[in-house]
Design a protein around this nucleic acid. Structure first.
Lengths: 257, 257
DNA sequence: AAGTGGTCTAGACCACTCG
DNA sequence: GAGTGGTCTAGACCACTTG
């Protein structure tokens, strides 16, 4: 898997920089490029692949923004030391997240009904409080252990027959995407620390007052419209959040000439 | 504060795209551009400011990557709905974060000593357990209210005279950066939900058993070497985490021509 | 001095959105 | 059809790192 062997498809709808980026990513994963070692320079990629330097650069920059590589002015672009395996900062449904962690996701439906949105969900979804939403309450399980309780609201207008067409064994996100063409691309999430109420404790098989995470999430389609409002409570003893953070190249770091 | 009024300093070491980006950021903060509303298009910025379109584009893209704005192909670039006050997904020191939220950060030092790393910090910092680290324990306050307890370990070898040179009134990150040339660019963070121990409760002026966040953070310089290991406990009643999540554009999302 | 990434230009074509 | 962002080119000058 040499860079030289890459045949770019210039007719493809897939951008050149993306083809290059994927190729390098593949080479990193396969061990062809090792952590701490330099990737081909912009100039070299540009010449070898017969693309402009800006295109080669864009491929390398996108690797940097993913945290897979980092650049040093005057030196080169290097493979990051940190592991690649976790795609943090991605919207993932519970199902997707558990599968990524290697656990078997499963849900127990507590209720599945059509109700008025109410003030809180209405504000998040930009509806009127009297507008109807589909509300789905589930206990989320991983490998048969209860992990959290989740209440999801989706505007009824977007999926009028969701109750008939949603298979509880599958992912809600997958249903929204495949059946209704609702592709969630962005979300805002607030995380708080709290204590399990007695109701939650019963569902999660923990003691009342145990530490829990409280999540409030609003999810959006590309147009920017909110399509899902979720409140959930997850067990503090079985759930943790892992973040990878990058530092803003922000304030006045330019040296003089 | 109109875009038109911006005088770019073409002699400055500060890049043009950055000057433009800062100017727009300022305009957003001042309310000149409102959430959901479009920013000037690449073309417009390019013409008005007499820069190339790529430069205008770079300014807008950097706003997008900060989460301050988002682009929609064929429509424009818009100011994000969410509040600006938190620069999510950025490594930020407590000081920086509180300043960004408009609170006055302050710390009370509990201890500041040179000790052996111990197993946990050694593993994170890739040291031997017997290697020396500088350990700084502080109560973190915002506007004179205690927010959390934080224990920071930095390898002694990196900053042998930190105890003499660190001014507790300033940011540790700033000291590491300005005095030792240690620029933190990346971090991994694990967040857990827990209950305040009696010691933490006393320091934070809350009841024992109150909900708290437990953070474990390892920070890295560009070369990928770990330089800081932090464990902290923050009050669940005064602290929350806001995340903006994007969904992977991963697999072939390009439409046909 | 040679190589590298950072910035910048002045064009170009495309797909998409909207009126 | 006009406007927008997405991609791409073929150059250019600069600052920085290393030998």
């Amino acid at each position: 898997m040499e860079v030289e062997s890459l045949n770019l498809d210039r007719q493809s709808v897939v951008p050149l920089y993306y083809q290059i980026q994927q190729h390098i990513l593949q080479a990193i994963r396969s061990g062809r490029f090792k952590p701490g070692k330099p990737l081909p320079s912009e100039e070299e990629l540009s010449k070898r692949l017969r693309v402009s330097r800006m295109t080669a650069r864009q491929a390398l920059k996108s690797l940097c923004s993913q945290g897979v590589a980092y650049s040093q002015r005057g030196k080169g672009t290097f493979v990051s030391q940190a592991k690649l395996d976790k795609n943090v900062r991605q919207v993932a449904s519970f199902s997707e997240e558990m599968e990524a962690r290697g656990a078997r996701p499963h849900s127990k439906i507590i209720s599945f009904e059509i109700i008025s949105a109410g003030d809180e969900a209405a504000e998040a979804l930009r509806l009127e409080p009297k507008d109807k939403v589909v509300r789905l309450r589930r206990v989320r399980m991983a490998d048969s252990l209860p992990m959290g309780v989740e209440t999801t609201c989706v505007p009824l207008a977007l999926c009028p027959d969701l109750r008939e067409r949603f298979d509880p064994k599958t992912s809600l996100y997958r249903t929204l995407s495949e059946i209704y063409g609702i592709h969630i691309v962005q979300a805002e999430e607030i995380v708080e620390a709290g204590l399990a109420t007695s109701g939650e404790a019963r569902l999660l098989k923990i003691s009342k007052g145990s530490p829990v995470f409280l999540f409030t999430r609003t999810a959006y389609v590309q147009s920017g419209h909110a399509v899902e409002y979720v409140k959930s409570t997850f067990r503090g003893d079985r759930y943790k959040i892992t973040n990878r953070l990058g530092r803003s190249s922000g304030g006045g770091e330019w040296r003089q000439g």
